[in-house]
């Protein structure tokens, strides 16, 4: 006992809180058999022994009892929650829950909303400087165009863009330049998989300037769909555009995969999520004119 104490004390201090250092009068091994805790989980033990079947779909829930809102109602609430916030920093977000497999392919695309959410995107285009492509990219709104200069800058650690696309001809040069180590972790490295290696640079840049990306994660697709200052009508067109593209995307996936839209939720930076029922407004909604003004 006398030897054990100094050995044990520092260990227990490391592992658990020091309050649990045993006092010498703890009745060891005496009343252990009576120390079981009586609660419901203990009774269920024998059934737990059977190995649980792993599910390969996400748990779905019934929306019958859920409160659902029309778009105007949801915006009415959201605008109240966002009162006094900076209208340019708070955004409307959509969350779309899909019925899908856990390990299946995911929806992933980019689209250009009718009313752009983010307008100050800096785009870098990698193509031979001075070529026709470069001029085209500049005209479309790219902020950085070039090859070697950009590589040099990136290697120095100066990354002054939010998106990076690459012309097909320059891909080899890009891969040799060794910037993947810097761009990769930031998700900026152009690759065929993300659709950022293209031949028609001009159109891609143009799409990107007002465009935003979405992808499915854990059965949910999230995307910012509007600024807080948008009117209900603007929001309606944006939401419609988003849902249409999403449905088209899902339709394009192979026949064996079934994906269905389960729930559509609208929220914003400071508000709770409102499940939408697909209607624009109902009889009791406030007039849309009221929601169109400044915050």
């Amino acid at each position: 006992m006398a030897q054990a104490r100094p050995l044990l004390a520092p260990l227990s201090r490391l592992g658990v809180s020091s309050s649990s250092i045993p006092k010498s009068d703890i009745p060891r091994l005496t009343s252990l058999s009576y120390q079981t805790i009586r609660c419901a989980t203990m009774k269920a033990k024998p059934t737990q022994q059977k190995k649980k079947k792993t599910r390969n779909t996400f748990i779905q829930y019934d929306l019958k009892r859920a409160d659902q809102f029309s778009l105007v109602d949801a915006m009415h609430y959201i605008r109240a929650f966002e009162v006094g916030r900076n209208p340019s920093s708070s955004k409307y977000e959509m969350h779309v829950r899909v019925r899908t497999l856990k390990n299946g392919p995911v929806v992933r695309n980019r689209l250009r909303l009718p009313h752009a959410v983010k307008t100050d995107l800096r785009i870098c285009v990698i193509c031979p400087p001075g070529s026709k492509v470069a001029i085209e990219a500049k005209a479309a709104g790219a902020s950085l165009v070039g090859e070697d200069e950009i590589f040099e800058r990136v290697k120095e650690g100066v990354v002054e863009f939010d998106r990076c696309i690459c012309h097909t001809d320059s891909l080899q040069k890009l891969n040799k330049a060794g910037v993947a180590r810097i761009l990769g972790p930031r998700g900026l490295m152009p690759s065929n998989k993300t659709g950022t290696v293209v031949t028609q640079v001009g159109t891609t840049v143009r799409n990107m300037v007002g465009g935003s990306e979405y992808r499915e994660r854990l059965g949910v697709i999230r995307m910012a769909v509007g600024q807080l200052g948008f009117t209900p009508e603007e929001m309606q067109t944006n939401v419609k555009a988003f849902m249409d593209t999403l449905k088209k995307d899902i339709g394009q996936m192979s026949d064996r995969i079934s994906k269905e839209i389960h729930e559509v939720v609208l929220s914003s930076t400071h508000s709770p999520g409102f499940t939408l029922n697909g209607e624009f407004r109902n009889a009791n909604s406030v007039p849309t004119k009221d929601l169109s003004g400044p915050m």
């Binding site: 109240a80 009162v83 006094g84 406030v286 004119k289 009221d290 400044p294």
Partner: peptide, 15 residues
């Protein structure tokens, strides 16, 4: 203010 804004949706409130 959220309650005020909810009841007066057309009223601009600036902070």
């Amino acid at each position: 203010l959220p309650r005020i804004k909810y009841r007066n949706p057309a009223l601009p409130i600036e902070i």
